[in-house]
Design a protein around this nucleic acid. Sequence first.
DNA 1: CGCAACATTGAAGCAGATCAAGGCATGTGG
DNA 2: CCACATGCCTTGATCTGCTTCAATGTTGCG
Lengths: 162, 162
Amino acid sequence: MPDGRRQVFGFALPGDFLGTAPSDRYSFSADAIDAVTVCRLSREAFTHFIEQRPHFPIRINAFAARELMLAQEQMLLLGRRTAEEKVASFLIGWRERLVQIGDERQTITLPMSRQDIADYLGLTIETVSRTLTRFEREKMLIIVAGGVRLLDASRAAAMAAA
Amino acid sequence: MPDGRRQVFGFALPGDFLGTAPSDRYSFSADAIDAVTVCRLSREAFTHFIEQRPHFPIRINAFAARELMLAQEQMLLLGRRTAEEKVASFLIGWRERLVQIGDERQTITLPMSRQDIADYLGLTIETVSRTLTRFEREKMLIIVAGGVRLLDASRAAAMAAA
DNA sequence: CGCAACATTGAAGCAGATCAAGGCATGTGG
DNA sequence: CCACATGCCTTGATCTGCTTCAATGTTGCG
């Protein structure tokens, strides 16, 4: 937003598909927080690509439905959850995605900054930091360089589900 | 949510398409707030319907992209806007949709309850009520039975855009 | 009328924001 | 290799916008 307020919609991992803004008057951008390799596709090329494959439409539809479902979960998160629930949700969700791409390490790596996390959760950087520190005090996790290590994953999951 | 917290994702108007939950473990429902006529379609029938029409995929894709864009705007609203901005945004957005379906009356009808509006904006019913009352005190609008009448639409639009 | 559902209003409380200092790495030039 | 800057992150104190709690008002309907 003009005044600096920002909403982060998501964090992409290898293999993810990022759709761009379909309208002109819509400001939406992607920033790299790490080294990135991308495969870029113009809208026309994408449309053409779809037309070539008769079986694709259903998969596209399923994909879109999934995206929309995630978006709705995020709306619930932003609108109705506490800071504690937001941070726990984020950690659990992010860990799940890391596992899906094959990162099974105990430590959850957090390559994004606290500011990025805050803007993703609709919080301030201070609240994110304080919440993580509290989780650490309560022995739910340990904050390490570049990430956190979950000690009590079930408690975190319970917070996230709530 | 189990504890009664609720997130309203949107208000449908005549002609709108409502996609349902693609997954099982996902609770999402639609409530009628008024007399309703629906055309219901099973997922299989829908898939079949798409397959019959070679030109549909592109339109589906465009539709999904639009939905996703709206969802992202809503995330920005929920995560980063004040109560005042939320209510103003809602009024302006709702009016725009009413106009699109041909309702050009000066009074913006609000068939949904304050609770519904609150759950849509991530606020409490009291905050919605107070904000509307304040708007009325500030001569931005008049609260009437079943809706509001905008007196200073440009001011409302400015708040919504912010 | 009298009840029930919804809306408004007021007072008090609190979760999270804001303001303000430090810490703690990493880098850089002398 | 040290002085110093820079970019996060953490921590503390204070503030405030929204929530919560508690009445009260309003509307519609059997």
